[in-house]
Write a protein that binds this DNA or RNA. Sequence first.
DNA 1: CATGAATGAGACTTCATTCAT
DNA 2: TATGAATGAAGTCTCATTCAT
Lengths: 199, 199, 199, 199
Amino acid sequence: MAREAPTERRRQILDAAVKVFARQGFHSTRVADIADEADVAYGLVYHYFASKENVLNELFVQRWSLLLEAIAETEQSEATPQEKLGVVAGFIIDSYRYDPDLMKVIIVEVTRAANSFGRTHLEQINAAYLGIARIVSDGQAAGVFRRDIDSSFASMSFYGAIEQLLSGWIFGLIPGSDRDFDEARELVVKTICEGLNQR
Amino acid sequence: MAREAPTERRRQILDAAVKVFARQGFHSTRVADIADEADVAYGLVYHYFASKENVLNELFVQRWSLLLEAIAETEQSEATPQEKLGVVAGFIIDSYRYDPDLMKVIIVEVTRAANSFGRTHLEQINAAYLGIARIVSDGQAAGVFRRDIDSSFASMSFYGAIEQLLSGWIFGLIPGSDRDFDEARELVVKTICEGLNQR
Amino acid sequence: MAREAPTERRRQILDAAVKVFARQGFHSTRVADIADEADVAYGLVYHYFASKENVLNELFVQRWSLLLEAIAETEQSEATPQEKLGVVAGFIIDSYRYDPDLMKVIIVEVTRAANSFGRTHLEQINAAYLGIARIVSDGQAAGVFRRDIDSSFASMSFYGAIEQLLSGWIFGLIPGSDRDFDEARELVVKTICEGLNQR
Amino acid sequence: MAREAPTERRRQILDAAVKVFARQGFHSTRVADIADEADVAYGLVYHYFASKENVLNELFVQRWSLLLEAIAETEQSEATPQEKLGVVAGFIIDSYRYDPDLMKVIIVEVTRAANSFGRTHLEQINAAYLGIARIVSDGQAAGVFRRDIDSSFASMSFYGAIEQLLSGWIFGLIPGSDRDFDEARELVVKTICEGLNQR
DNA sequence: CATGAATGAGACTTCATTCAT
DNA sequence: TATGAATGAAGTCTCATTCAT
């Protein structure tokens, strides 16, 4: 169908943007780089997006909304709080595993850049933290989690641990093989729920 | 001391830079903004610093070396592994408490911007992670910490939790009163060492 | 007729162009604006016109040729020189009265923009001045008009007075009711022929 | 004095702008053209002016305020109304005689472009028309000018005649020697006050 | 040391025009 | 005829850095 072409082009540009943003960072990326990578004319980027920033915004929103959905879904499931945290961690880690460039862009350029683009999306970002905090406080209410650690505090620790892990993979500070990804999901939950202490 | 004491002007410029970097972010800060804030002539910034980036670098290096020293020092102390982690967490949290702008700049513009400036300092940044990892592996060797959680993995989780906490304070996502700061030190260690699970 | 009647689409586009040129000015008008206003596909404008400038040119030429015809016609009539000037003034004023947008475009974007588009049409524009000058010099030859005022000078004054009047209406500097239009024709001739002086 | 240099540079840029605006028109002038003509670096234009448009605005305001002063001054003098109109016409014509490029720019790009830049200055432009209108109505009150021609109408005719004259010179439609300039002042007043009719 | 004018490369964005369908 | 996606040249403005005084 000819009608689908426009959508394809958009996709093509978004995919190219992920690549170059991941490679060079948003600020060092010129619109020309996106167009070159996408193998389209310069102006076409502006045919589909109002600005370079909008391209990044769209990448973030599309992906982040999936995370929010995943959190919301697991929240309402019958799983134990620990399992729920495992679902969240798993979703984020798998997002990285299957599209490391996209997650790199989202983390480096948006969630960890709250001073610039992140500011725009602070509410969305916070929505994720709040969802995790609800999982924790539900666990507290159910007597599964201790009550002397504030749920929003716990949420930050949990999310921070995961994101730092991804950062470590992204910048090659810790090994990131498929086995590591599989294990990481378990470990991060184990760390946060059971703690480092030897029993 | 081998290093000459920075002149007062230098200091004046660095302090101004912290303010404007914290306020506007590094990229949105023009050299003129720094000079204005420092109440100093435009060109003087270039008299003392080779480039705008160098100003940021210096801010980072000065502060980060203190953290590395603190980690090294506690590593060699007689404290328990848990206490050592508490020292590290406390140092970072106090750094924020006593100079939130500076820590905001360091976190937002350097450690969490590993794609741009962070890249330059990746080794220094990693040195901190490695120091924390050594504390953990020492604890594992001493039988205090469990061994099924990799020490560098644990280090990332621990540091990530702290940094995310600071992010939360910086962007107003979680409350940050003096009492919170005091408590946070305890809580972050408790979370990572003991875990969230109810005993 | 040698010229084929413009299709309806052409007309539709020209009419839309008048509206948007009048509203936003030629330079601030994008081809897309014309197409939108005409409720026509973007590319269709280029199907009927070689360029955006050509649209304006056509608007001008169509209208201006009517003025030239009117001048030529009255020149050859039996009327007095004063009456002839009245016909010219009346034609221009009525053009504005019945299609203010079109006259606004012609005056603002062409005759008063001799540095850009006007340059292209300078000869046509001058043809009108020359026609008016001939009316004046005929009047001088007939002893009706004084001879110490050069006819081309008088022509400029006469045309300039009328155009300034239209400008005043266009930009709301002087009131422009139907009565004003009626009166203006008389007044402009009276002013130029009889002068302001009290007798 | 070193302190005067900045002002000189500003002047240098303004003078260059007059030349290129007159030659190519405002829209066809690139900022680079101004810088080249002024023989200064590109960026210096932006050091002194906020935008290309501001350069034009300044040229207009500087010149037009002189006209407004001249009108105000003659208004309050003891001269006859006819003499006052002569002063106004003389001022405008002399402005053209001594700096034709500047007047060309002001007329072509501002007063006759009320749809674009003129809009910004409409009030200033109108102030001149109103001043002239006051001269006329004073003359009417004094019984020197006829009362059946509205003063603002007369003002528009008078100013329009002068401006059209300048246009004619600017675009080479009527001869513009020094003798013509001298004569024009007399003629335009004679035309408007005494009229074309043979006595 | 100190000043701030001067430089000029760089990048975003616009939009007239073309073209495949 | 009609459509609107695709092209890419052009030009404004920014701002880090240099330099003369």
